[in-house]
Amino acid sequence: MSQSQLVELDEAAVLGHAGQALAHVYFPTDCLISLLTHRVQPRSFEVGQLGYEGMLGAAAALGVSASAFDAVVTGAGRAWQIELPHLRALTRASRSLTLLMTRFLYFELSQMGALAACAHFHTLEQRLARFLLMSVDRLRVADLKITHEALSLILGVRRASVTLAAGAFQEQGWIQYSRGHMLVLSRAGLLQVVCACYRQDLSTYDQVMLGSTAAQ
């Protein structure tokens, strides 16, 4: 896309607010973007996560005027940025692009439903393992730059609860945590405790984005 540019996105940067229109659409290359329920008291939590496999703004590109969630960078890195009017014009001109974005929007909605249920039914340890595995998959690195405060926002719990759960993982030798860095040492260990939502997320993406494309 000639109208796009590669931009650096800092951790905690807010790319969109719930109820407001997006100015740009983002295609992450090595960053992580979390979709959060509107940040009002007492807490919010993550209902969607985007990495190199996805985009922020699929609904906007298809004509929806306002964002449904807050979009916050939870893993610093780079993304391709394109102004929304340009992408809308490209989408209107290409049936294939429209179809691809519709599929991704379906996957995104499926993920949101799964994560909302996950927040209600599964333990903090299961949800923390899911977040860490999803983040490693999407960032393609084992060293995650994230604080306990950011994790408490994403998981919708008190910071002290995150500290206890992360401490238990560190005692098991699954992660190593220091100064805003969380290094995943054992995927196998995290897979022992993670809830079914993690595998469901992977399976749905393969079916919708890869299986459907191959079937055309």
Rank of each mutant, 00 (worst) to 15 (best):
A18Q: 03
L153H: 04
E125Q: 15
S4P: 05
V208Q: 13
Y205W: 06
S152E: 02
A89H: 14
L9R: 02
A196Y: 05
A165H: 00
Q216V: 15
Y177H: 07
L133C: 12
V47F: 14
T29N: 13
D70G: 00
G16W: 11
Q111H: 08
D206A: 15
A60Y: 03
L139V: 07
V64Q: 08
L84C: 10
L132W: 00
Q49L: 13
G167W: 10
W80L: 08
G51Y: 08
M55E: 01
S161C: 10
F104Q: 12
Y205H: 06
T102Y: 01
L50S: 02
A76F: 09
A150R: 10
D143C: 04
Q170G: 03
Q192T: 06
T147Y: 13
G211W: 09
R179I: 11
A76D: 01
E11Y: 11
A166D: 00
G51I: 02
L139Q: 11
A117K: 11
D201K: 10
L115I: 04
V194H: 02
C118S: 07
S203Y: 11
A214M: 07
H120W: 02
Y52T: 04
S34R: 06
L183F: 14
S203K: 14
R130Q: 15
M209R: 09
H24Q: 09
L100K: 04
T102W: 03
V157C: 07
L32Q: 09
R140E: 13
A76T: 02
G16Q: 10
Q170R: 13
L164T: 15
V157N: 00
S2T: 14
Q49N: 07
L124G: 01
L99T: 09
C31P: 05
C31Q: 05
L6V: 11
L128V: 13
D10T: 10
G156R: 05
M134V: 14
T91C: 07
T102V: 09
Q20M: 08
F45R: 03
L90G: 09
L190S: 12
S94E: 13
D206W: 06
R140K: 08
E8K: 13
P28R: 01
T204C: 14
P28D: 03
R43K: 15
L62T: 04
R158Y: 12
Q172W: 05
A160C: 10
G77E: 05
T213M: 08
R103E: 06
T102G: 11
E108S: 15
D70L: 05
F104I: 12
L128R: 08
R95C: 10
D137S: 09
L62W: 01
E83T: 12
A61P: 03
C195G: 15
Q216F: 15
V72L: 03
I154K: 14
A114C: 06
A12H: 09
R159P: 03
E108D: 15
R92Y: 07
G57F: 03
S2Q: 06
T147L: 08
L84E: 07
L133G: 10
L153W: 02
P28T: 04
L202Y: 13
L105E: 02
A215E: 14
L210D: 01
L115E: 00
Q41S: 12
Q49K: 08
A142K: 07
K145D: 14
L210M: 06
M1Y: 15
G75M: 06
G156N: 04
R88Y: 09
L84M: 10
Y205P: 10
Q172G: 11
M1S: 14
S65R: 10
Q20S: 08
Q192K: 14
Q207V: 15
A116I: 14
